[in-house]
Computed example of a mutant assay.
Amino acid sequence: MNRLNNKRTLVTGGSSGIGLETARRFLEEGARVAITGRNLASLEAARKELGNVQVIHADAGDVAAQKKIAAEIQDNFGGLDAIFINAGIGDFRPLAEWDDAGFDRSVAVNLKGPFFLIQALLPILANPASIVLNTSINAHIGMPNSSVYALTKAGLISLARTLSGELLPRGVRVNAVSSGPIATPLHGKIGLGDAEIKGLVGQIPAGRRGVPKEVADAVVFFASDESSFTIGSELIVDGGMSTL
């Protein structure tokens, strides 16, 4: 406990799933926590569940909204010591069914918005500070229908490396957590039923889906001083799925 004592932290997409669990773990480790989300009802539910957190209503795919997030964080916290860039969408379609609007929305939420959020937050990042990007093993495996999702997550993995090289001189580390199938509401949102989930689990050597805490614990490591010599890296949390 207290691995993040008094650290000022931000979790985007913090109202459900991995983001909500990470915000909970940050609080347990002594951090001050702000979360963002697009759905007001989900944000209010998260506020009630978590307790003492700053809640910011924002669309992860809106570039202008990223500046609003930075302004609210500065007003309330004065600065930031750790960020978990987690907000994202999973839109899975065959190549023939994609249109430019859907493509642009996935890129905006999963890649463009995070890029400009980091830009907006850069002036208020402490020295040292840690940025953790939530990526995916889909960037490494050729899963059908995941083309656009995978390319956005591959972009984040690339950012973990390039931004580490660029931002390290001012004390900012950037790392990535790439998760496999995690039991969150996302699987229901993309239409996976019991049969599809059973088939998915059959591809995981561990024999089960992960749980949000297993990803959140990895994020806590990257956000803490324990990972001070870990820079531009990617930690895969997938039950061995990407090793097949």
Results as ranks from 00 to 15, higher is better:
Leu133Phe: 07
Ile137Gln: 00
Ser146Thr: 14
Leu151Met: 15
Gly113Asn: 08
Ala139His: 05
Phe92His: 05
Leu163Ala: 05
Val148Gln: 03
Thr152Val: 07
Lys153Trp: 01
Pro114Leu: 10
Thr152Phe: 04
Gly113Arg: 09
Gly142Arg: 03
Phe115Pro: 03
Leu111Trp: 04
Lys153Ala: 01
Ser164Ala: 15
Thr152Asp: 09
Phe92Pro: 02
Thr162Cys: 09
Pro144Cys: 05
Ala129Trp: 11
Ser146Gln: 12
Gly113Pro: 11
Ala108Arg: 12
Asn145Phe: 11
Thr135Asn: 05
Asn145Ala: 09
Val132Phe: 06
Ile124Phe: 05
Gly155Leu: 06
Ala139Met: 04
Asn145Ile: 08
Gly113Met: 10
Leu159His: 05
Ile157Phe: 01
Asp104Ile: 01
Ala129Glu: 09
Val107Gln: 01
Leu122Ile: 05
Ala150Arg: 01
Pro94Tyr: 00
Ile124Val: 14
Gly90Val: 04
Gly102Asn: 12
Phe116Val: 08
Phe115Thr: 15
Phe115Asn: 11
Leu151Cys: 04
Leu133Asn: 14
Ile137His: 00
Leu125Gln: 13
Ile131Cys: 06
Pro123Gln: 08
Ile131Gln: 05
Val109Cys: 08
Gly102Gln: 09
Val109Pro: 04
Asn145Lys: 13
Pro114Cys: 09
Asp91Leu: 13
Ala101Val: 10
Leu95Pro: 00
Leu156Val: 04
Lys112Ile: 13
Phe116Gly: 06
Val107Tyr: 13
Asp91Gln: 04
Pro114Val: 09
Val109Glu: 04
Thr162Phe: 07
Asp99Ala: 02
Leu117Met: 09
Asp91Glu: 12
His140Phe: 12
Ser130Thr: 10
Met143His: 08
Ile131Gly: 04
Leu159Ile: 14
Ile124Cys: 06
Thr162Tyr: 06
Asn138Cys: 07
Gly102Ala: 11
Gln119His: 13
Ile124Gly: 09
Pro144Trp: 02
Asp99Gly: 09
Gly113Gln: 12
Gln119Phe: 02
Lys153Asn: 06
Leu163Gln: 12
Asp104Ser: 15
Phe103Gly: 00
Ala120Trp: 10
Gly155Gln: 08
Gly155Asp: 11
Ala96Glu: 15
Glu97Cys: 01
Asn138Ile: 01
Pro114Ile: 07
Pro114Tyr: 08
Gly90Cys: 07
Leu151Ser: 15
Asp91Ile: 12
Met143Arg: 11
Pro144Gly: 06
Leu95Gly: 01
Asp99Met: 07
Phe116Gln: 03
Ser164Asp: 13
Ala120Tyr: 06
Ala160Leu: 05
Leu156Thr: 03
Leu156Lys: 08
Val132Trp: 07
Leu151Asn: 02
Ser136Gln: 01
Ile141Leu: 05
Val132Leu: 08
Ser158Ile: 06
Phe115Arg: 14
Arg93Gly: 01
Ile124Lys: 08
Leu156Phe: 02
Ala96Ser: 14
Ser130Asn: 12
Arg93Trp: 00
Arg93Pro: 02
Arg161Val: 15
Leu122Ser: 13
Asp91Val: 13
Gly113His: 11
Ala126Pro: 10
Leu111Cys: 08
Ala154Val: 05
Arg105Ile: 00
Gly155Phe: 07
Leu163Thr: 09
Ala139Tyr: 04
Thr135Arg: 03
Asp104Gln: 11
Arg161Asn: 10
Val109Ile: 15
Trp98Lys: 02
Leu117Gly: 08
Gly90Ala: 14
